[in-house]
Design a protein around this nucleic acid. Structure first.
Lengths: 133, 133
DNA sequence: CACGTAGATGACGTTCACGTAATGCAAACG
DNA sequence: CGTTTGCATTACGTGAACGTCATCTACGTG
């Protein structure tokens, strides 16, 4: 189990996805399980990537966008020439994400205010009820 | 233009969506433009809702989820009985969003660290180049 | 009044992200 | 040794979120 290699079924239970999904991600070149004969074996690297994939999805990225993002986490074996360009992209992504967080913070604040406003309404309604007694 | 009512075309330009999209959202009961004869006229309320719809999409919510969220911003004309329940839901949503922001913060930090690591690699590669000169 | 323009209404097409069989193969089990 | 179990491949199906096209209507304009 901790031999760094997991079967498709183990992956499914660990990350709550279906086999179909994992095969689909492989077909889309998001994961690269090794093969023992026919069977897929997922590595630590695949698991790390899958975590990022699932996270990306939660934020509304398409699989293609996620694939590009994943490449940023895989810089180790790139050539120096490409590296600079890769870094520009990474910085842009970072800026994107920070903007997103800003927006999310705004949304949270809006919702909080709605809640406060609602509480006031409820409070005043209760007062009216009391007044009516 | 500022008469509080906008045609479909004005809406499209203001929010960068297609007419099809706006009609689709109406069909899905996300927007409720009024009718002047046949034509749709979008109100301030529709615009507020559309902003929230687009924001929701950027965070990966489905239109159905967004529809439910929108109802939270529309509490004004609910009965007291439903209101309490609505508030529970709103609080849950708020918790969701805060969790999301946490996760996003984590992702941002990860990416930042990747960038720092990459900078170190680049720096050391430059040193090697100098040493080779 | 002919005509262009803006918008409406179906109805069918498309892309994405998988779901769902149908079928095959290979090791494990009773 | 037959069968179940686990995984594989191939292929067709599906729901969400629109795009696209054909057709229709109402309105202003020369």
């Amino acid at each position: 189990m901790t031999e760094d290699l997991m079967t498709i079924r183990e992956m499914c239970e660990a990350y709550d996805v279906t086999p179909r999904t994992l095969r689909f991600y492989e077909a889309k070149e998001l994961l690269f399980p090794i093969r023992e004969g026919q069977k897929r074996l997922f590595t630590k690297r695949d698991r790390a990537r899958l975590k990022l994939i699932l996270r990306g999805k939660r934020f509304g990225f398409s699989l293609e966008e996620i694939r590009q993002l994943l490449d940023l986490y895989h810089v180790g074996d790139q050539q120096m020439t490409q590296m600079t360009r890769t870094f520009e992209i990474a910085r842009e992504r970072l800026a994107d994400m920070e903007a997103r967080r800003e927006e999310l913070t705004q949304a949270i604040d809006d919702l909080k205010e709605q809640l406060r406003w609602g509480e006031k309404v409820i409070a005043s309604m209760k007062n009216e009820n009391k007044a009516a007694e």
